[in-house]
Amino acid sequence: MCNAWRLTRADGVVLGFTDHDVPLTFAGTAFSPVSGFVGTEVESGLGLAVDTSEVAGAFSADAITEQDLKAGRYDGARVELFAVNWMAPADGHLLMQVFDLGEVSRAGQAFRAELRSMAQQLDAVRGRVYGRQCDANLGDQRCGVALGTPALIGLATVVAVEHGAKLRVGGIAEFDDGWFRYGIANWQSGANAGLSVAVLSHTRHDDGAEIELWSSMGDAPQEGDTLRLTAGCDKTFQTCRDKFANTLNFRGFPHLPGADFAYGYAGEGGLHDGSSVVP
């Protein structure tokens, strides 16, 4: 018997690895031994606690590369663990457990990846969130905003890199200050082509614009790299109305009293006519 791991990235790339000393093929996947994967014991228990395990290996040009790992191409990957009879893998394999790829650490040419059981998905928020802000994602079915509209898209070119996450860009001078804040940046060229990252801030200057990303890229952007920027939304009623003219699809409750209302009191000179607290 031996172990085999099938890793499926968010972009659809599928990789197979085994701790056996020869390649194995089953379930439509070729499992390679060249990565030198080594698995640890899996601790499982009753209840809803998240089970964890680890795999360790070395970087290989034909398998997992350090560049792809740094670029985040393995974030959120799905890992399936098989027990395999290596003498008859086509019929003698059994899916033991399914994991999400967790924390990945690197040391030289070696890496160690944490595997978290599917129980961790129970920590995710499900259903509606009742609050003043919208709980839909910009552009999804509940929101209804067409993100492909030219007015919401900008094509920018990197002019200078101030540091890993802050960029000076050109090509978006016609967009208002903050237009792409909380939006998405999709890299169109350069070492990060094909990757997406959230935008933390967008500041307009007389000589161009400054974009700050939520996190630094695995490969530092270079002057001349291009990226496609999509407008962002801070999920407030005012933004939904003024920026997107989409108030009919607003999925929040802007008139919901909050802590400021509960602790407030009627003061002399205030307006107390029962009107909306949202302008």
Rank of each mutant, 00 (worst) to 15 (best):
V125Y: 00
A119I: 00
Q109H: 13
L115S: 09
F99C: 01
D123L: 15
H93Q: 10
G102I: 12
Q120I: 03
M87N: 13
N137P: 01
R106K: 13
G108Q: 12
R106Q: 15
G127H: 01
L115A: 07
G127R: 01
A83Q: 05
R142Q: 11
A119K: 05
V104G: 04
A90E: 09
F99M: 03
R112S: 15
V84D: 02
Y130P: 00
D135M: 01
G108R: 12
L101C: 10
Q121N: 14
S105A: 15
Q121K: 09
A83R: 06
M96Q: 13
L101A: 14
V84C: 07
M87L: 14
S105C: 07
Q141A: 13
A83V: 09
S117E: 07
E114D: 04
Q97G: 07
Q121H: 12
W86Y: 14
N137I: 14
R106V: 15
Q121M: 05
Q109W: 13
S117W: 02
R132P: 05
P89K: 01
D140W: 05
L94E: 10
V125P: 01
R126M: 07
L115D: 09
G127M: 01
G92F: 04
L95M: 11
F99L: 01
L101N: 08
W86L: 05
M87C: 05
Q133L: 05
G127Y: 01
E103H: 15
G144W: 06
L138S: 03
S105P: 06
G131L: 00
A107Y: 13
Q120A: 03
D91R: 09
M96W: 07
G102D: 09
A88Q: 14
C134D: 00
V84K: 00
L138E: 01
D140S: 08
Q121V: 03
M96N: 08
A107M: 08
D140E: 09
M118K: 14
D100L: 09
L95P: 02
R112W: 08
V125S: 02
V125M: 00
D135T: 01
G102P: 03
W86I: 10
L95S: 08
M118F: 11
N85G: 09
R132T: 11
C134P: 03
Q109R: 13
V98E: 10
G131P: 00
A113P: 09
L122N: 05
D140F: 05
E103A: 14
D135S: 04
S117Y: 05
P89N: 02
E114F: 03
G102F: 09
A136K: 01
R106P: 06
A124P: 00
R106D: 04
A107L: 10
L94G: 06
G139F: 03
V84M: 02
R132D: 06
C134T: 04
R106G: 07
N85A: 12
M96V: 15
Q109L: 14
A136R: 02
A90L: 14
M118E: 11
Q133R: 11
G144P: 06
D91Y: 09
R112K: 15
M96Y: 04
Y130Q: 00
Y130H: 02
A113H: 07
G92M: 03
L101T: 11
Q120C: 03
A88F: 11
Q120S: 06
A107K: 11
D140L: 04
L122W: 07
G131I: 00
D100W: 08
C134W: 00
A88T: 15
Q141N: 05
A113M: 15
R132G: 15
D100N: 11
Q141M: 08
G131H: 00
M96G: 12
L94H: 12
